[in-house]
Design a protein around this nucleic acid. Structure first.
Lengths: 260, 260
DNA sequence: CCAAAAGTGTTAAGTGTACACCCATGC
DNA sequence: GCATGGGTGTACACTTAACACTTTTGG
């Protein structure tokens, strides 16, 4: 049975949001040389869902996306960008999440209204976000039972067209590698050159020459080499770097002369 | 006063389409070394509007965009691609088109319903289309009094955020020059190298070296030189070329190694 | 001292840029 | 023949790609 505040929030969903339109966000993080994506586990315990939600009647798309991103990660001021609208009429024809809710809240009038609303056709605006992996505190919502990272190479069963949304997001991410501050967004403030290289290699799906990578990266003049080195690891200690945000964004205006 | 079929069509607009979402299309053509865009003149005789419309309840975004494109140009199978969703809550706060209609159809119940519907907030999915200028037969709709080409360098007053939609479309067009069959879509089947160069120069907003342009273009192996030359003009007759569609699309997979 | 990783240097091959030259056409 | 535009060739600068060598660290 729904708790009071859940009932109220379900009722408000219809009143406060635009109909027929939703937002889904592919939230990417980078950890241990793997690109990860934040997913929510549905109550059916089988399928997973992209974080997402609806657009307030007085909210812009970007405001809504930032609000939704914050509610899953606890983060603000994150790189977030829309990349595609998904509007196949079949995409929300079967909505398992809502069907299950319908049974669960069978005696609840507001919930039933909500379920009818949410079972209708939706067009979703896909966003992708890039976050620093370690800063995220995943939080699931009332429709789901878990929120955690998945390797993009090893995705679980996803509802509706979310698999395809993720694939499009990844494709966009790769295409924009030289036009968006992707390194700055996915890595911690301080990182080593090999770490940056692993990120590029992961995103591009191929290995790069260590020496040429370093030279090219430095030639962009967007990195600041710090006096400290990373101690503790075996072998020679690598320098630490930090992005010079200003130079980075300036350089991205024309794109980092392509590329590998 | 509205004619019968207009009343019916207004009523059907609400019943047949998704609420809160629209489509606007920036239709580009290239003629006499100028990039043009197809615009509709509103009944106020002052402002212009992008071609657009709504999405049928069983239609995909692409189907809707193609239907709308056909209704303004008479063309099918045209290069058409979504590029951005515009969702500022202010963007449709003032809708002159609907306000004028409201007066005009004051005694008409269906029209009033329609006007209320259309005055609400809309999120619009922006598409851009590339057409062969000479093949288009511009047709205006019942909300407008004229449909004609405008030079993108010399745009008239536009409603709402349509100016900004056009600017975003142009920016996207330039960015995708090496990744989409833009030449093939905007030029006639047969064209000369200088004509192709003018197109690139216009899109990029800068002049290119004639000789290097030719060499680079030919190096892509996407052009077929025809035995005939363009007669009639003054001076030396240039060769005619035609895109090899298959090679072109294959080459675009990896992008035409950049670029000018 | 050795292995492994990081930093720097060198060079040949390839690409881009700027320009010189020749060809075709109309007047 | 000359002005104009179209087609081809070439030299040079610069970038890229491949690889050698040196330095640092833990064991």
């Amino acid at each position: 049975m729904a708790k009071d505040n859940e009932i109220i929030s379900l009722k408000n969903v219809i009143e406060d949001n635009l109909p027929s339109i939703s937002i889904d966000i592919a939230i990417f993080g980078f950890h241990e040389n793997h690109l990860r994506i934040l997913l929510l586990k549905n109550k059916d315990k089988e399928s997973w869902t992209l974080p997402g939600g609806f657009i307030g009647k007085e909210e812009s798309l970007e405001e809504a996306a930032n609000r939704l991103l914050f509610s899953r990660t606890g983060l603000n001021n994150i790189f977030l960008q829309q990349f595609h609208a998904f509007g196949d009429p079949e995409r929300t024809r079967i909505n398992k999440r809502a069907e299950l809710l319908k049974e669960q809240y069978a005696k609840d009038q507001y919930a039933q209204e909500f379920i009818e609303w949410v079972l209708g056709r939706f067009i979703t605006i896909g966003f992708y976000a890039l976050v620093e992996f370690t800063e995220v505190e995943p939080k699931h919502d009332i429709f789901t039972i878990e929120c955690r990272w998945h390797d993009v190479q090893d995705l679980p069963l996803l509802v509706s067209d979310h698999q395809s949304i993720i694939e499009t997001a990844l494709k966009t991410l790769r295409q924009q590698l030289n036009y968006q501050p992707i390194g700055l967004s996915l890595l911690p403030h301080e990182f080593t050159m090999p770490e940056l290289q692993r990120l590029y290699e992961t995103l591009l799906g191929k290995t790069l020459d260590r020496r040429n990578f370093q030279r090219k990266m430095l030639s962009y003049k967007i990195l600041e080499r710090l006096p400290t080195k990373r101690k503790g690891g075996a072998y020679k200690a690598p320098y630490l770097y930090r992005f010079d945000k200003e130079s980075y964004e300036e350089a991205l205006q024309n794109g980092l002369k392509d590329l590998w």
